[in-house]
Structures are given as structure tokens and as C-alpha cells.
Amino acid sequence: MSEEQKKTEEQKRTEEREAARELISNAEEIGTETAAAETTARDEDDENKGFRKYKIKDIVFLAIMAAAMLVTGCVMPFAGRIPVFGMTQLCLSLQFSVLPAIGLMKVRKAGSLLLMSLFAGVVLVFMDVIMFACLAFCALVAEAAVLLVFRGYRKDAACFFAAWIYFPLSMPFVYVWNLAISAEITGALNPWYVKAAMCAAVVALCCIGALVGVKIGREMRKSGALKK
């Protein structure tokens, strides 16, 4: 084979290699663009769904909020022994509305409130068994109400509503339990006006707490901390 033929073959190979490389890079670019477009479309599609898949960061954030609820709720076993109806709820109403509201403002997915209740319930079950069962049930009712009224947590009002009604809903259940188990000590036999006043106080405090939680959520979103 002559020197010239060798050179021509070498040149051909180099050209082929370059063409193949360009083809690959072009295909990769197209693939990335398509994948990015697909992801964006999927995200947008996902945003409009009522039930969305949870990501690890959602679970972690909800668990941390639940831990915060637990730390602030450690007065529960002692507050529950004070013979005034709804004393536990009164002591915990602020933190049990602020923290769920913040959690819901970040993780706007159906089931967030229930997950928070379950995570907090791991320890709560030792402080007050009925409170754990109550909170899980109340979370379910609150979630159902939000899905019926707002069709999800897209609006801030939905987060506020869920955080507001979540804790006061536990009062009727606790009342029935107290009446059955330890009426004279837990305040289930208090006069009606005491019960009414305590219920009103809990509802008002939860409303304030939910408002504060939503306000904090908005501030965090504005600062970029609550990014999706």
C-alpha cells in the first residue's frame, strides 16, 4: 500500500470518528432536552394532581416538623392530669397548629397531615395513648375536609384550614374517652360553661397558630427557603 493511500485511509477514519462523535453528542443533547422537557411536563402535570408521590425530602421535612411537635408537646402527660376539661388541648393548641401549617406550606400533598401525626404518634403513644389515636383520626378527617372543600393543598387557605381544624377536632373524642375512663379527674364532669369556654379558647388559639404558621410559610417562600 502506497504512502498516499495510507494517508487517505487515515483521514477517512478520522472523519468517520468525528462524525460519530458529533452524532453521539447531538443525540445526547436531544435526549437531555427531551428528558428535561418530560420532567417539566411531568412536574406540571404532577402539580395539578390531588394525590402526588412523596419524595424523600418531603418525608424528612414532615418528620422534623413532627419531632418539633413532640418536643413542644412534652407537657402533655402532666397537663392531662389537671382536672379541667381540654387542658391538654389548650396547652398544645399553638404548637399543634403552627407546626402543621408550616409543614403543609412546604409539602402541599394529600396525606401530609396524616404522616405528621403518625410520626409524632410514635412517641405520643407513650405520653397519651388516646391522644395518638385521636390525632391520627383527626388528621384523616381534616385531610378529607380539605380534599372536599379545596381539592388539595394548592391554596394557602387550604393549609390554614387544615391546620386550624386539626387539633380542635380531637376535643369530642377526648371528651368521650375521659367520660368512659376517668371522668372525675380529667374534667369531663366540669360545668358546661367551663367546657364551652375551653373549646372556644382552643379554637381561637388554633386559628391564631394556623395564621402564624401560614405567615411564616409565606415569609419562607419569599426568602426562597420553601422552594419545591
Binding site: I56, I59, L62, A63, L70, L115, V122, V123
Partner: peptide, 18 residues
Amino acid sequence: RAVTLGMLIALSFVPMLR
């Protein structure tokens, strides 16, 4: 897995939160 992860974090995060 979501439940076990959440429970693990909630339980072990309490001292850290303090």
C-alpha cells in the same frame, strides 16, 4: 419505607432539636 424513615428521624431528631 416512608413510615420507618419518618419514625427514625422523628425519634432521633428530638435531642438535636433541643
